[in-house]
Amino acid sequence: MKTLHDIRLSMLDLVAVREGGTVADALAIALRTAQHAERLGFQRYWLAEHHNMSGIASSATAVLVGHIAGGTQRIRVGSGGVMLPNHAPLVVAEAFGTLAELYPNRIDLGLGRAPGTDPLTMRALRRDRPETEQDFPRDVAELQRLLGESQPGAKVVAMPGAGTHVPIWLLGSSLFSAQLAAERGLPYAFASHFAPRYLLQALQMYRQNFRPSAVLDKPYAIVGVPFIGAPTDDEAQYLASSTYQRVLGILTGRRGQLPAPVEGFMDRLDPQAQAAIADFLACAVIGGPETVSAGFAQLAEVTQADEFMIVSDVFDPALRLRSLDIAAAAMREPALV
């Protein structure tokens, strides 16, 4: 049985553009947050690929990975993830191969099979054909080949990329990627920060069907956790109203920039909207230090995760850093409660 001390702590950043702020502000906040996470001993800092969303500035994910890696010293930096259907595997291999040469042993390549955008933007990304069930497994295999040792006689070689062995992670919010990660012996990250419904079923499938590989001898699973910490439960709930507003916007098709917190926001909503937000954030840990410790402990007990990857959308950048402090302190607890 894992204790909190056994579980690594990492962060996923959507690089939120705040109301009243700019993209440049968002990028600067992301770098300061990554530097703070590094000082706290976080294992990795991932950036997520999304397109055509006014409130998210991480569309050029590989570029941003390089920016964050260049501004830090030790923390692993990667994609959480690159949406592989949007890209040719060779282009991804060359981009992340270049990053691996610039920042040795610090780059992760997390791969998702969703487009990360709307149908019109998909076409603008030159996705001019429908995806089949076999496309993603085939593209993952191609990336493994391109990032592995160059084979004699190979007609297409990723340069840079070949021989870098950039760690590949499979990401998912359903059972498909869990099964594929198990078959390939790859590490797996479940997107429970926004789609928690199949979390436990996916983890069970991954662990039961895992086949050891050259890169991993036993299953390794990351669980996404929406997180906001504050000195008190009341303040944490107040700060979380920014996230609640963002989630409601996603659910109603009215996406926008990250809004400032609003006192009593949830109380103003009808029960159906409250329930929808609660379902979306079913894995969330929000509260003061004691609530956070108990929440992390319960999640550890239920999931037996190897790593928590928090998503912390706090409007005030300084209070976001304080939130990370609280998360790190909670993970140092010696045992489950």
Rank of each mutant, 00 (worst) to 15 (best):
P219I: 01
I222F: 12
T132K: 09
M83G: 04
H51R: 03
A93R: 08
Q237I: 13
P196M: 03
L143G: 04
E263R: 15
V292K: 13
V215L: 14
L299Y: 07
N209F: 00
L281N: 07
L171D: 04
A93N: 10
G78Y: 06
L171C: 03
S54L: 03
Q204N: 08
H5F: 12
V337I: 10
I29N: 09
V166E: 09
A318D: 15
L4V: 08
S54G: 09
F315M: 12
E142T: 12
S79N: 03
I286L: 08
Q43D: 08
G288I: 08
S59H: 08
L175G: 00
A300Y: 10
G20M: 03
A230C: 10
P219F: 10
L40C: 08
R113P: 01
P85S: 06
T303R: 07
G41Y: 03
R197A: 14
L120D: 05
E183K: 06
L111H: 11
D6W: 05
E19Q: 14
D217Y: 15
D217K: 13
T243A: 13
V302F: 04
G20A: 11
Q201A: 00
L336G: 05
L186N: 06
Q304L: 15
I326P: 07
F136A: 02
L180G: 02
A88H: 14
G112H: 14
L216Q: 12
A48E: 04
L175A: 02
L321T: 04
V302R: 14
Q237W: 12
Q179K: 01
D306S: 14
W169H: 13
I326W: 02
L251F: 11
P152W: 02
V314T: 14
K218Y: 11
L40F: 05
G78C: 10
D267P: 04
L64T: 07
L109H: 09
A62K: 00
A26E: 14
L186W: 10
A114I: 03
N105M: 00
I56S: 06
D234C: 05
S177W: 05
G253L: 01
P196H: 10
V92L: 04
S150T: 05
G112D: 13
A260Y: 03
F227W: 03
A305Q: 14
T3P: 04
L4F: 06
F190C: 00
E142S: 13
A60W: 04
D233C: 10
G253Y: 00
L186V: 06
A284F: 06
S174F: 00
A278G: 04
D313K: 13
A221C: 15
A300N: 11
G20Q: 06
D233R: 12
K2A: 10
G116K: 06
A88W: 01
Q204M: 01
G97T: 01
K218S: 13
D108G: 01
M83L: 14
L281I: 08
M309Y: 08
S79M: 02
E263T: 11
T243F: 11
L90R: 04
K155F: 06
G97Y: 05
D13H: 05
L27M: 07
R44S: 15
T303Q: 13
A202V: 00
A182I: 00
R18H: 14
T232A: 05
A124C: 05
G153K: 06
E263S: 09
R76Q: 14
R127T: 09
G253M: 00
